[in-house]
């Protein structure tokens, strides 16, 4: 595609997505609230990503520890290993990697699910069955993704640190208590809170992009695949952009 056309498409896509997000806020606050469907989605979205998030978190902590050790040993500060890993995981790697995994798992499944519902007229069928499909499908999924990602991040952080503890013990011996004392001594609320807050934004981004792509899916099974795929790509890029913004904001607020 030639550049001007690409640029135009990017702008129109961004505009559409902003409108969609606006619609989310308008519809989200108006009653009838779909509480039971929200709970159902929270369960599905949280539960579905648990194994993957847990596994990647564990490996991340373990590998990071093993990779960092040689450098720290050469500087003679091997004892700082838990602190280094703790800060890296809690402030940056935990939220971002979990969010990316979440985008791959949940973003694509929301995109494909809503896409195929759109293509097979299930969304229209909901509308004639006395249901506002935007509220029932989009608002619940976006809220569930927003609420569940921070929980998954905390969980992933904890499992990562456990992985790191095992990593430390491969070459040396540290007691469980000592390891976690070192980690938590190094961490303060200023490390934890911004990471926690940005996780909400990551979750929101994954939810809204997945729903947007699915809801606007074009006809045919090919359209469904494309929705799922671009949901992952766009939300992953958005996660990095949001991460960049978050670090600027915490910097300005002096939370570093």
């Amino acid at each position: 595609m030639p550049l001007p056309q690409l640029w135009r498409r990017f702008l129109s896509e961004t505009g559409e997505m902003s409108r969609f997000t606006g619609r989310f806020f308008v519809q989200g606050f108006k009653p009838r609230y779909e509480f039971s469907e929200l709970l159902h989605q929270c369960f599905i979205i949280g539960y579905k990503s648990l194994p993957l998030v847990g596994l990647t978190g564990f490996i991340m902590g373990l590998v990071l520890t093993m990779q960092l050790r040689p450098s720290l040993v050469s500087y003679g500060v091997e004892s700082e290993l838990p602190m280094m890993v703790g800060i890296a995981v809690v402030r940056e790697i935990g939220p971002v990697i979990t969010a990316l995994i979440f985008a791959g798992k949940i973003g694509s499944s929301i995109g494909a699910e809503l896409g195929s519902m759109k293509v097979t007229e299930q969304i229209d069928a909901m509308e004639v069955s006395g249901t506002n499909p935007f509220k029932y499908l989009v608002v619940t999924r976006v809220l569930a993704a927003t609420l569940m990602l921070p929980v998954l991040v905390i969980l992933s952080d904890a499992i990562s640190l456990f992985g790191s503890f095992i990593g430390v013990n491969i070459r040396g011996v540290t007691s469980f208590n000592l390891f976690f004392k070192q980690v938590f001594d190094a961490l303060s609320f200023e490390d934890f809170i911004p990471a926690f807050i940005k996780s909400y934004f990551f979750g929101f981004a994954v939810g809204i992009v997945g729903c947007f792509k699915g809801f606007n899916s074009s006809k045919g099974t090919e359209g469904v695949g494309r929705s799922a795929n671009s949901a992952v790509v766009v939300s992953s890029v958005l996660i990095f952009i949001l991460d960049l913004l978050a670090v600027q904001v915490t910097d300005i607020l002096g939370l570093n």
């Binding site: 699910e113 519902m117 097979t120 007229e121 299930q122 229209d124 069928a125 004639v128 069955s129 006395g130």
Partner: peptide, 28 residues
């Protein structure tokens, strides 16, 4: 007014029973 969709529009994630109950529940 009942509507039979060209592509049936059955909800994939629900059983037949839940599909049939859906309009009853949602129309209160």
């Amino acid at each position: 007014v009942g509507f039979l969709f060209q592509s049936n529009a059955l909800y994939d994630s629900m059983t037949v029973r839940e599909n049939l109950e859906f309009p009853l529940r949602r129309h209160w």
